[in-house]
Amino acid sequence: MDRARPRLSRSDQAQPVLLPEEPAILGVRHAVRSWSADHGGGPVAVALSGGADSLALTAAAVAEVPDVLALVVDHGLQQGSAAVAAAAAAQAVAFGCSDAVVLTVDVGHCGGMEAAARRARYDALGDARAGRPVLVAHTLDDQAETVLLGLGRGSGPRSIAGMQAWDDPWGRPLLGVRRSVTRQACRELGVVPFEDPHNTDAAFTRVRLRHEVLPLLDDVLGGAVAEALGRTAAQIREDAQVLDDLAAELLDLARDGDAVLVTMLTERPAALRRRALRLWLLERGAKGLSDKQLRLVDDLVGAWRGQGGVAVSGAPTGARLVVGRRHGRLNAELEWN
């Protein structure tokens, strides 16, 4: 939960600067302009860390969007983090943001520091966005890293499909922009981005992908690997959307109240059947479904041998969400310990 919310408003600072008409910042502006046109063109919030990507995004958003609220999350994980957050908020207002709010969060330990910080950050941004979309500064390089992580973990096409430009309420206008462009944009703007030491810490898998694996792939494959991975993600997302639409239609046919009829699923292709089951399980409260869990649930349809129920993620503390087959129907019910 976020604590105090120091804030600055445009009236507290000088008038916003005019952005230079240089190639990098113009490229970032074009990406934001295109995203805004595709998603209503209204006011937005921007998640600002003080790093190069989010600084360039914030400056471009001010130039392209009618009203921009900057949200700066202070995780409190490093000495001097409050000063970094305050400087980022001040820069946002100097760019022309109508308001800049610092959100100080408590980072837990569940799932490791990186995952805990991400949860705390997104929870705080979601609470403070005031109904606006929140723009986050994920770049093409981040997309490439995400695709490689998905490939390495064998977590299926949803991971390989990477991040979406719009995943309500999160907007990602810079998925086609290289990290080198946002850094150059900061030089053109005359601002010095904050360099997070975690971004060079080889203890984190993403850091090693960024500094070791992707450069090696570029060397072996002749360059442009990030762009190729971005194209692959886009193609998989397009295919996945078609399958998801077909799965939603199949689920509607198979519904029997809160249960699903096995006979409506049995003869369907496994990939389509599992997508329909995933949609149904999410409706029933499942969260963080693993491929293994989904395949075990699918076995209740496609490999039925009278086996018992399957526990899936998402139950409240002290309970299990269990999927079982009875009388030709699948039911998902909470079982309390």
Rank of each mutant, 00 (worst) to 15 (best):
A286D: 08
G285V: 04
M264Q: 15
R231S: 10
A240H: 04
V301I: 09
L243S: 12
R255H: 13
R255Y: 13
V310H: 03
D244A: 11
A248M: 10
L251C: 07
G285S: 06
T263L: 09
L282T: 11
L289I: 03
D258Q: 10
G222V: 09
A319R: 13
E238Q: 11
A271N: 12
V242E: 14
L282F: 12
S290W: 04
L229V: 06
A224Y: 06
D252T: 08
G257C: 11
R320K: 11
E249G: 08
G308I: 03
W280I: 01
E249T: 09
V310S: 07
V310Y: 08
E238D: 11
V260G: 10
A234W: 06
G314N: 10
V312N: 04
L277E: 03
P269C: 11
A247K: 03
V225T: 09
K292N: 10
V312I: 15
L243H: 07
R268D: 05
A240N: 14
G309E: 02
P316R: 05
A315R: 07
L294H: 03
P269Y: 11
Q293V: 04
L221F: 12
T317G: 09
A303M: 03
G257H: 11
G288A: 12
A228R: 15
M264E: 15
L250G: 01
A270V: 14
A270R: 15
Q241I: 02
Q293C: 06
R237F: 10
D298T: 09
G309N: 00
D258T: 06
A270Y: 14
L272I: 07
L282N: 09
Q307N: 03
A303E: 13
L300W: 11
Q307H: 12
V242R: 11
A270S: 14
R320T: 02
R278P: 00
R231P: 03
A276Y: 13
A240W: 04
D298L: 01
G306M: 11
L229A: 04
V310N: 06
R275Y: 01
Q241D: 14
A247V: 04
D252Y: 01
R320Y: 03
A228F: 00
E267H: 05
A286G: 10
A259R: 15
A271M: 08
L243E: 13
L246M: 07
L272H: 12
L265V: 02
G314L: 09
L277P: 04
R284K: 10
G222W: 11
